[in-house]
Simulated scan of single mutants.
Amino acid sequence: MRPDEERDYVAYVEARLPALRRLACYLCKDEHRADDLVQNTITRLYVRWNRAREARDLHRYVDKMLLRTFLNEQRLGWWTRVWLTDGPRDLPGPGDDPETRVVVRAALARVPPRQRAVLVLRFLCDLPVTEVAELLGCSAGNVKSQSARGLARLRELLDVGEFTKEEVGGHESR
């Protein structure tokens, strides 16, 4: 990579790192796994930087890389994961109740990965159905059905409300 291309890459990654990390934290529910996911994504981006720069929407291209990396990691066996903490540290959100956030995150962690990705993109990242479908490489109808199933599962989990201390990051649910 030429020095000017590398400068562009570094500038892009520095500007997008907080958004990528936030998306990864929503998906992974563990800030260390999220950091690994972002690192894997930006490493892959470095290798593909010349092609990525020519993408119609670079942000969406990189988001799609991150999502595919996440979904591919979910297909791997449990033996590839090492848990070093009790749970993810709460990342502050705009104007939300910390207790509610902890319980919702614990419930969201129990939703299947593909449904979780759809819910995160649709409701936490506020993306329209068509963009989520493009990012996940599926139809808009699939996104809608995954949203409905994911929301139903999330409601079911929140109605039951039985989360252990470990699931809510060491906090008591109320």
Rank of each mutant, 00 (worst) to 15 (best):
R174N: 13
G161N: 11
V38Q: 04
L66N: 01
P88D: 09
T164S: 15
R155C: 07
D86I: 10
C28I: 04
P128Y: 12
P113I: 02
T130A: 10
D90Q: 15
W78F: 11
L20N: 03
Q146G: 00
N50V: 13
A133E: 01
C125E: 14
R48P: 00
L124E: 11
L66P: 00
A133R: 00
G87Q: 00
D8T: 03
V132G: 02
Y26E: 08
L45A: 11
K64P: 04
R22N: 06
L119D: 01
R81C: 02
R7W: 07
N50W: 12
A148N: 13
V104E: 01
A107F: 00
D4R: 08
Q39W: 12
R48E: 08
V10G: 05
C25N: 12
Y26M: 04
E162Q: 13
S173V: 11
V103S: 01
V47Y: 14
V120A: 06
A152D: 10
A106M: 00
V10I: 11
C138V: 09
G150D: 00
S145W: 13
W78D: 14
F70R: 02
N50Q: 08
L20G: 03
L37H: 07
L157A: 03
A52Y: 01
R101Q: 15
E131M: 09
E6A: 11
A117Q: 03
P18G: 07
N50F: 13
R75N: 09
A34T: 02
E162W: 15
W49A: 02
H32F: 13
D36I: 11
M65F: 06
R48S: 08
P3A: 12
G137E: 02
R174E: 14
G93E: 15
R51N: 11
E31H: 02
D159T: 12
A24R: 01
M65Y: 05
L151R: 15
L20H: 06
G137R: 05
R110A: 00
L66A: 07
D36T: 04
C125H: 11
S139V: 03
E14S: 14
V143E: 04
D8S: 11
P128W: 07
V160I: 12
H32Q: 13
R21F: 13
A152E: 15
D63F: 09
E14A: 07
R75E: 15
E31Q: 13
S173H: 15
P88Q: 09
S147E: 15
E162T: 09
A24T: 04
G141L: 06
A52W: 00
N72E: 12
R89P: 03
D96T: 07
A107P: 12
G137D: 13
R44M: 08
R44N: 10
R75A: 10
L37W: 09
T41S: 05
A133D: 00
T69S: 11
V102C: 01
A55K: 07
L23S: 08
D90Y: 06
V10T: 09
